[in-house]
């Protein structure tokens, strides 16, 4: 009996030591979890989550400081994916952080723009081109629709326009389910 106990304890110690060593020896550089979370976030970089960009929010989720339902651009699908990744329960988007909107891009009214460069400084992805006192414009394919440029504009010439469906982005809808019976 005693020998059995001793042997078991011995095995436990040896295995524990091996595991401990392995966890140090094979420690992965960086924090893959943050990367994985960041990969799910939409990269709109809008800050609506309360963090200065998607990566900081990812960091905060992984540290357990932030909840998973704070990113409005990611929407329900994003929350679902985060819930899947982290093995948590799905919860609806938190209202204080905003609501899910159709994807839009910023457009500068070029007649009104005074060339103040304030929007350039606000844009997190450098999607606005222009120079001081020159007309500015948004490079639509690069714009993430974060709306950060809207507020700083002194002459209110930036508006958000929803992206229209084109032949290139059109897709087939989910077939209407006419399953009249499952018997």
């Amino acid at each position: 009996m005693l020998t059995a106990l001793l042997i078991m304890t011995g095995i436990a110690i040896v295995l524990g030591a091996a595991l401990g060593y392995a966890s140090i020896r094979f420690k992965v550089e960086g924090d893959p979890l943050v990367e994985k979370i960041d990969a799910i976030l939409p990269q709109t970089q809008c800050g609506q989550c309360g963090y200065p960009g998607c990566k900081p929010y990812a960091q905060a989720i992984s540290n357990g400081e932030a909840d998973i339902n704070q990113c409005p651009p990611g929407g329900e699908e994003g929350i679902r994916k985060l819930a899947d990744l982290l093995g948590r329960e799905f919860k609806p988007l938190s209202e204080e952080h905003g609501t899910e909107k159709p994807k839009s891009v910023a457009r500068i009214d070029e007649q009104v723009c005074i060339g103040c460069t304030l929007c350039i400084q606000a844009c997190p992805v450098d999607a606005i081109v222009g120079a001081a006192k020159q007309m500015h414009t948004v490079v639509a394919p690069l714009c993430t629709g974060c709306e950060l440029c809207v507020a700083p504009c002194p002459v209110d010439c930036i508006s958000m326009v929803p992206i229209a469906e084109t032949v290139e982005t059109w897709k087939w809808k989910y077939p209407v389910h006419e399953l009249r019976s499952a018997a």
Binding site: D38, L41, P42, Q43, T44, Q45, G53, C54, K55, P124, V125, D126, A127, P141, L142, T144, T169
Partner: peptide, 16 residues
């Protein structure tokens, strides 16, 4: 397409 766009956005954000 979305993935490409978000990868691009991430890169541009990080570069900025």
């Amino acid at each position: 397409r979305e993935l490409q766009a978000s990868d691009q956005a991430r890169e541009r954000f990080e570069f900025r």
